[in-house]
Structures are given as C-alpha cells and as structure tokens.
C-alpha cells in the first residue's frame, strides 16, 4: 500500500511526542559544564605569574598583549597583560604553555557586552579569579625541580625563536 512507510514513520513521531523532553530550559536552568570545559574568559593568578611571556609566544593569533619592565630589584615584571579576546580561538595553547599554571580559562560563556571596547580583558586590572575556573590544561606536578634563581630569565632565552616568530622578538 502506498503510504504505509509514511504511516510507519508517523507512528515513530507519535512515540516521540509522548517521550521525555530533552530541551534544556536555558536561561532558567544553567547547562552542566564539564570541569575541563573551555569558556570564553581568562583568569590569572597574578602573584604566581613570573612574567616569562611563554603564554604570548604560544598563542597562534597574537591575542595576548604583554609589556615587561624591571622593578627596583631588577626583577622582570609585567606591566601590561591584556587578552584581546576578539581574536581568540579558545584553543587553550596559552594555558598549556604557562610553566606556573597560573593562567586559566574559565567556565564563563555568557560574554556578550555592549561595546567592542569591553571585549579585551585586562588581567592586571581584574584577574577574574572570581569566575568558575576551568580545569583545562592542568598538569600533574612537575617531577623536575625548578631552579629558584631567575627562572624568568632562563625561560624566554630557551624559547627565543618562537618569540621572534610570534611577537617580533619583543621578549
């Protein structure tokens, strides 16, 4: 009989009508996010950051704008740390590259803002640690002991070619 297949299909549709609803009622109910979920903002543990610049060097799209200076003890400090999020791929390479594990992605996903000027994140002005931090890129503790004097100077030297490539040799 012509139309039997359609009726058989309709019976399936009928079954779906009475089955459990799968739609998440989004604005009222927040979605469940896995712990490694990569959100759209960054958080920085400022006191742990050693201003090595490895995060900026590893970024494929030059999202991270950093400026460095020396403080009175001659220690390298970071004077500017801005994530230009409008260019970000949210690939997480920067988070993985950080030797101190102090740069994090967060679970923020409702990141709409009124002005384009609000998109970049100045992590020195607001380190954003109040957001839910993603566990993405968390490494098991390093086995090799880190030599305490001047780790900041050693790291960029080792990765110099990448620096030239990614940031025009700025570091």
């Amino acid at each position: 009989m012509f139309g039997k297949g359609i009726l058989k299909g309709l019976a399936q549709t009928g079954k779906q009508v009475v089955s459990k609803r799968l739609t998440e009622k989004y604005p009222e109910e927040k979605p469940h996010l896995p712990e490694r979920w990569r959100g759209n903002t960054f958080a920085l543990e400022k006191d742990k950051c050693i201003s090595c610049g490895l995060c900026a060097m590893s970024c494929p799209n030059k999202v991270i704008r950093q400026k460095f200076d020396k403080d009175e003890d001659g220690k390298k400090i970071c004077t500017e740390f801005v994530m230009e999020r409008q260019y970000c791929l949210f690939c997480g390479l920067c988070v993985e590259a950080c030797p101190k594990g102090c740069l994090h992605l967060t679970h923020d996903f409702e990141t709409a803002v009124y002005s384009a000027a609000d998109v970049p994140q100045d992590l020195l002005a607001d380190n954003h640690l109040d957001a839910a931090i993603s566990k993405y890129g968390e490494k098991p503790p390093l086995v090799k002991p880190v030599i305490p004097p001047k780790p900041a100077a050693a790291a960029p030297a080792a990765a110099k070619p990448a620096a030239e490539d990614a940031k025009g040799g700025e570091a």
Binding site: K4, G5, I6, K8, G9, A11, Q12, T13
Partner: peptide, 10 residues
C-alpha cells in the same frame, strides 16, 4: 523505521 520505508524519501 522513520525513514527507510517512507515513500516520499524513496
């Protein structure tokens, strides 16, 4: 069941 025998699809 939904698609395979649907005459329109075939």
């Amino acid at each position: 069941k939904l698609i395979d025998e649907n005459e329109i699809f075939l």
